[in-house]
Amino acid sequence: MKRRGFLVGAAALTVLSGVGPAEAQYTPSRPIDLVVHSGPGAGPDAFGRALIAAIEAEKISPVRIQINHKIGGGGATAASYIIEKKGDTNTIGLFTSAWIANPLVQADMKATVKEMTPVVRLVIEPAVFAVRADSPYKSMQEIVDAAKKDPTKIKQSGGSPLARDAIVRHVLMSNTGARWAFVSFPTGSERIAALLGGHVDMMIIEPSEAGELIRGGQMRALAQVSDKRLSTFPNTPTLREAGFNVPNVPQARGFVAPPDTPREVIAFYEQLFEKLVKSPTWQKYLTDNQFEDAFLKSEETGKFFDQYSDLMRGILTGAGIRVVR
């Protein structure tokens, strides 16, 4: 959606003094379209807006950046839009792990990140295993043991079978031999409500969502789904530290450009986001939301796509989900 009219004042053009030396031959002349796959208010949209706010506050883009919603298809609409935009240097797409995972099982999703030009990877979202504050389970091991004893006892609330929480469950179940139920809810609110109401026993939740509920004495974290401990949960072990030898399933966000975007255009975006990542505004945003800074340039981002696809393909096949790509 292009925003004009009474919003022009708010999104004032921020003009930059010189993008940088030698390498950056390319400078966009029109506003940049930032394609997100969710409607206003949902995760990717909120992330995109925060990012634009930070770029504007730091005045590091020569042109205005605007959100363009391509809603639908679990990311498929946005992804195929990016493919269609081949040759357009003013359009970039905000990818999430769903852009990589969903086409693996959906035959109809023909637009894959493999065809697009990787730009950067920005963040990894960690997560924690949480239980209700009055839960009898004090550690991940206790829950897994209880589940081993009685497979109908433990229930986990989560999202779709391709979402990270379901994937981590599969990884843990095949690693430990335990079994527990998984109850799917479309929104985070419903997953949390099911936990707080005592209808399920645990869930995997983003630290930004869990933080306040833990501080308010409603929830407790048992383990972290990340490579190293987060600053906000210094006393909660990671899954590996808790004794589970499982691969970490990262939930990443970053940008892709249309297919065959020229190198100098990619260089421009790399520099733009590199400046953003180093800025204090962005660093504060990351700390506030407990995102892990995971900046990768174009080439490494492409490698990350391959690694992640392979990891997911293996896990999904192991979970009995049919992989089509």
Binding site: G39, P40, G41, A42, A46, R49, A50, A53, S189, I192, A193, L196, S208, E209, G211, E212, L213, R215, G216, G217, Q218, D288, N289
Partner: peptide
């Protein structure tokens, strides 16, 4: 509780977060 029930409340909630407030049981 910091739990939005729909799209509009979700965006109100994200506005609170961007202001640096902490929606949740302690708000």
């Amino acid at each position: 509780l910091g739990l939005p029930g729909g799209g509009t409340t979700a965006i109100l909630l994200s506005a609170l977060v961007l202001w640096g407030l902490k929606p949740g049981p302690m708000l």
